[in-house]
Amino acid sequence: MQNNRTVPNTDDNIKKCQCPECPIYNKCMKENDEHLFCSKGISQCDFNKTGCVCPNCRVWIEYQLISLFYCEKGVEKN
């Protein structure tokens, strides 16, 4: 049986979200209130791909996600 890796855009998941702690996260993302990329999809901002904290995120762990760089690639594909 395949895991459902769809991350709901909920207040609880937003509180757990580590996107603002990522080295990629920048002023543009903050000003546009972008976060929870694993649920909401790619960033509309330009950024330098300098690292990824997804594997340390409680949302990533809870939903057993497998990808990285959701800010670039978009939501997890089931």
Rank of each mutant, 00 (worst) to 15 (best):
D12F: 13
Y63A: 09
C52L: 12
K15V: 10
Q18V: 03
D11A: 15
T50F: 01
S43H: 00
E21D: 15
K49Q: 08
H35A: 05
C22Q: 04
P23E: 09
K73C: 06
K15D: 15
F47L: 10
Y70S: 11
P55D: 04
K27R: 06
L65H: 05
K40R: 15
Q44G: 08
K30H: 11
C17M: 14
L65A: 11
I66Y: 06
N4Y: 09
C19A: 10
W60Q: 00
K27P: 00
E34N: 01
K16S: 12
M1C: 07
C19E: 03
C38R: 00
F47I: 08
K49C: 01
D46R: 01
V7L: 12
N9M: 12
I66D: 06
C54R: 04
I61D: 09
L36A: 04
Q18C: 14
N4V: 06
Q18T: 15
M29W: 01
N48L: 05
I24N: 00
Q44D: 02
C22D: 07
G41I: 13
P20Y: 10
F47T: 03
P23S: 12
S39I: 04
D33Q: 07
L36H: 02
L68M: 14
H35V: 08
D46Q: 03
Q44R: 08
C19S: 04
K49H: 03
I42W: 09
M29Y: 03
G74I: 03
N48V: 14
L36T: 01
F47M: 13
S39H: 01
T50H: 04
R5K: 15
M29N: 02
C17D: 08
C57H: 02
I61K: 15
K30D: 08
C54F: 04
C54Q: 01
G51E: 12
C38E: 00
K40Y: 07
T50D: 09
E21K: 15
P20T: 14
C45G: 03
Q44C: 04
R58I: 09
K27Y: 03
M1F: 07
N3M: 10
C22P: 01
Q64S: 11
C57Q: 02
N26Y: 04
I24H: 02
